[in-house]
Design a protein around this nucleic acid. Sequence first.
DNA 1: ACTTACCTTCGTGTTAGACGAAGGCTCGCG
DNA 2: CGCGAGCCTTCGTCTAACACGAAGGTAAGT
Lengths: 138, 138
Amino acid sequence: MTYTIHEVAEKLGISTYSIRYYNDHGMLPFVQRDANNNRVFHDTDLEWLNMIVCLRETGMSVKSIKHYQDLIQEGDDTVNERYAMMCAQQEQTLAEIADLKKHLATINYKVAHYASILENNEPDSFVPSNLRTEAVGK
Amino acid sequence: MTYTIHEVAEKLGISTYSIRYYNDHGMLPFVQRDANNNRVFHDTDLEWLNMIVCLRETGMSVKSIKHYQDLIQEGDDTVNERYAMMCAQQEQTLAEIADLKKHLATINYKVAHYASILENNEPDSFVPSNLRTEAVGK
DNA sequence: ACTTACCTTCGTGTTAGACGAAGGCTCGCG
DNA sequence: CGCGAGCCTTCGTCTAACACGAAGGTAAGT
């Protein structure tokens, strides 16, 4: 099964620009071409692209992903480093999730605050400054 | 209690560049100055900065945060819109957490994969291509 | 007097693309 | 046969949200 660049873009929810970008920057090597020089994507390419998307969305830089890809090319001697990279990514992602949850709590508080104002039709201004009521509660 | 820009930067874990940037771009108005024109931050400023950090880290653009700040300035008529903004942010953050968790599962899989290779001292290459073994398993 | 810490404006660099322009293939359609 | 569609290339500009250095200035602390 093969795919065009547009099919891949739609399947993975990314733009054709990004795909070309990843390909041009060595993160997605071995993409074949047809007689007209058009990129031809196989399922393994899709899997790799999926991994790229995963790493990007968890905050890994393009440069590091390229390095990771290079390590894979270099073979089994690099398993240690690859392992370390994935562990680091794992930790970082856990930390980011924790961070987001903390921020979510703040946002939830704001939502509740506004909801109560709207429900009670009770204007927010029994204190002089808006700043006061807008302060982030504990 | 007042703080210098450096104290605030350290307290909130952001750079003085960012603070000046936020201040210059209208997200953090009302920051006072002393006789030497140095910024003087009060606790309400810290609270606001904290909110800015929260919104930024959950993906809101500087432009939108500025808009949110403008809405607050405009007073109680804008509570509806502010409520909508926070709800949107809430949803978006929930979605991002879900996304990260999904990606984390992929990364966990990789970590386990490498860990098993390293534990068994079993090289990864009983198949010809590295690509095969590097493919993201379901 | 000197260092330090702050201020200003100006300008460049960075990342990860998004996007348009120009120029050039090739395919299928009428 | 000519057309448009879809792909390709290179080149180049644009964006967000800062990061950072330079230059030039003020003011306080030692």
